[in-house]
Structures are given as C-alpha cells and as structure tokens.
C-alpha cells in the first residue's frame, strides 16, 4: 500500500513578499493510480512536489502515507544530475553497483544507450532530462513523482517517452504523480487529472478517466474529458500552452 492523502495542505512564503502559494490542497492518490496535476506556471505544482517528497516541512495541513513510507522515484524540474559523474555512474549512485544491467537497459530505453560515460555537461537539456527519467525509474519506486519530465523534447521524442511511461505504468502499476502543463499529455497518460487553480490555490477539479491500458485514440469519453478540462482552464490568467498545440489525444 502506497496511497497518499493530502488534506488542506497550505504553504506560504515570507520572502521576497509574503504570499500564500498553496491555500488548502486536498488530493488523494490511491495505490496504482496515475494522477496528473495540471496548473499554469506559478500555481504551486513544484511547491507541492517538494512537500510530498519530504523536502519541505514548512507546510500546514496534513500529509499521510497509507502503509509504509514508499520508496520514491523523483524527476525534479531540473535534471539534478551529478556533474562530475558519467550518466551510468549517475544512475548507479542511486541504484547501487548491482543495478548496472538495468541501468544500461534504462539508458537504452530513454535513447541514451551510447552515452554511458558522457558527463551531464556534455549533453543537451533534453538528454539530461531523459537521464533523470531513467534514474527515477531505476530505483523501482513505489511512488513516482515527475515534474514536467518531457519538457524540451521534440514532439516525436516526447511521444516515444510518453509511450515508455505508459508501458512502465501498465507493467508495474507504480503509483504516479505527473506534473505537467500539457492537458493532452495528462489525459493520454493518466487515470485521473487534477487541476491546481492559480486563483483559488487549491485543487479545483479532479477528473477520473478510463485507465490508459492503453489509451485508445478517438475514445469519446476521453475527448469529452479533454474538452471539459480545456474549458475549466480557459479562464486562467496565463494561457495553457497545450491549447495552442494540436490535439493529439482526442
């Protein structure tokens, strides 16, 4: 059991100006769910991730794990690779030397098979991001947290990585929280999409979807859900970038 229950989670910062970033977030993620959290830039998504990952204890409200505290796999918003370790060594740092075969396989899966010994600084931003994704999958997490893992990948590569994430989830049913700006991506991968409102500063909509097993294109329920989500997010001060992109999932 690795469910997560957030109730009325609040977070305020005093600097540089006092402000409330999270104003009472309620979110429950049950074992085996793939939940996407969508919200515009500055809505507090990364702030929430840090609270869930145990990196920020200055929050109000309550956070409870059902069952034992899970093993986490995290893709931070920045790659956070160790600059002086090659990619394989970066993976082995978290996986241990015994995980070398799986680490190689995962580097292959994120299309970095020939970059074992490359240092992060020698790679593009998108390559570093994929290495960070491989690292998070390597630890066989009970709970996977992804902060915009596919940003800065070209459309075709992002699609292949979405397939990888979907395969991983279907094989293991790893409880997953995906943070993204991209509604179509959220709908394609998730069992549920939660919307974090930048105005009310909490989760304002929580939309269940048929499990992506796999996601069939043209599913009318999914198309309708995407329509709904788009309508709900239209009034945000910052326009949703996914809206301008071609509708892939519908």
């Amino acid at each position: 059991m690795t469910g997560l229950v957030l109730s009325a989670v609040t977070r305020a910062f005093d600097h540089p100006v006092p402000r409330t970033v999270l104003g009472g977030v309620d979110l429950t993620i049950a074992q085996g769910e793939f939940v996407s959290l969508v919200g515009p830039s500055g809505a507090g998504k990364t702030t929430l991730l840090r609270i869930i990952a145990g990196l920020d204890s200055g929050y109000g409200g309550s956070l409870a794990w059902q069952g034992a505290r899970p093993r986490l796999g995290v893709v931070f918003q920045e790659p956070r690779l160790v600059p002086w370790l090659g990619l394989l060594d970066n993976l082995l740092l978290v996986g241990g030397p015994e995980s070398v075969d799986r680490a190689r396989a995962l580097l292959g899966a994120v299309e970095l098979g020939d970059c074992d010994s490359a240092l992060p600084g020698q790679l593009s931003g998108g390559m570093q991001r994929r290495a960070a994704l491989a690292r998070a999958l390597l630890v066989e997490p009970d709970f996977l947290i992804l902060d915009e893992p596919l940003i800065s990948l070209d459309a075709a590569l992002a699609e292949r990585m979405r397939r990888l994430l979907n395969d991983f989830w279907r094989k293991r049913r790893t409880t997953t929280l995906l943070i993204t700006h991209n509604l179509a991506e959220a709908v394609e991968l998730s069992t549920r999409v939660a919307i974090l409102s930048p105005i009310e500063r909490r989760v304002v909509a929580d939309c269940a979807l048929p499990p992506p097993d796999p996601r069939l294109s043209g599913d009318p329920m999914v198309a309708a859900a995407l329509q709904d989500l788009r309508r709900m997010t239209r009034s945000w001060p910052v326009p949703d970038p996914a809206e301008a992109a071609p509708d892939r999932a519908g």
């Binding site: 990952a53 145990g54 990196l55 093993r71 986490l72 796999g73 995290v74 931070f76 920045e78 956070r80 160790v82 002086w84 370790l85 060594d89 740092l93 978290v94 690292r135 630890v139």
Partner: peptide, 24 residues
C-alpha cells in the same frame, strides 16, 4: 543543496554521498 535533495529523496547511502557527491 540541489544535489543533497536529490540524494535524500533517492535515499542514497551516506558513505556513497560522501565519496561521490561531497568530496568531489
């Protein structure tokens, strides 16, 4: 600090953090 946060969430063993992250 960003690297420490990373090793913390991945629960990397302290000695390994020392050798591969801190000492360099």
């Amino acid at each position: 600090p960003a690297l420490f946060e990373m090793t913390r969430v991945f629960e990397v063993k302290p000695l390994r953090v020392l050798a591969r992250v801190v000492l360099p």
